[in-house]
Amino acid sequence: MSAPTVDLQGVSHRYGSTNALSPMSLHLEGGSTAVLGANGSGKSTLLRLIATTVTAQSGSVRIGGLDASVPTERTSIRRRLGYATQHDGLPPRMTVGAYLDYVGALKELTPARRRARWAQFAMGQVGLTDAGERIDRLSGGNRRRLTLAQALLGHPHLLVLDEPLAGLDGETRPVVAALIASQPSARTVVVATHHTDELATVCDRAVVLVRGTVGFAGTPPELAAQADGIVWETATPPPSVAARAVAPGRFRVIARTPPPASISVAPSVQDGYDALQLLHRAEPSAR
């Protein structure tokens, strides 16, 4: 079975009086896509629309050609979906094994023996070892691993992951990022993240949301190119510009004119993202 396409046309969504997504369109093919954006830019709402847990208030969401607003087609989408929510949503008093058995049942995996095999496989994928451990005794990193493991149950063709690296330590993040990047080509992976350099660089595509609309859609090198010629490294960043520490005593600055005692450097994906954010902050009408 081929990777499902994700097709959003003129989609908008509001929570009460708060506008989460303005009318926006987006088309994603198979492979992995990193969804980037500041807090409140609409990343989680976009992922919920793709995961079909919320319905678009205007426009259409089609996954693999199926209409997410039609209940029977929505169920078909969910049969191919693995979804890890932003907040891990783990019942504290259950054990790891019981929780994976529970989610396996929600995914219609039967009989219990088959669910147990899937649980073992998913735990192995994310590096969890103790099925009998209670969830409220897991570390923050292992909770994220478990959230990821439940999403992998049943071999989903569409994997929607909201902040999968949040709460993971510096050693674990690259491991999980590599796991996400190494998903089979028959799978479409949509992942929201703040860890631009660690995750977006290993994805096939990047989408940047700015105040509920698509500010950029392209490959990670194309996103990095947004900052071509305006990235500088210096030991003494001027106080008037935002600087990002990249190493002890080394800072990156994005500016049209070079700061004193700085050298020009090739932009990273994070630089491209930062440049886009600065552009939209300076020119709100740019979108």
Partner: peptide, 18 residues
């Protein structure tokens, strides 16, 4: 009440049945 509620909603099992 249920921390895993969104996981329930995203699952193919009918949430009404749950």
């Amino acid at each position: 009440s249920d921390p895993a509620h969104e996981t329930v909603v995203a699952a193919p099992v009918d949430a009404f049945r749950v």
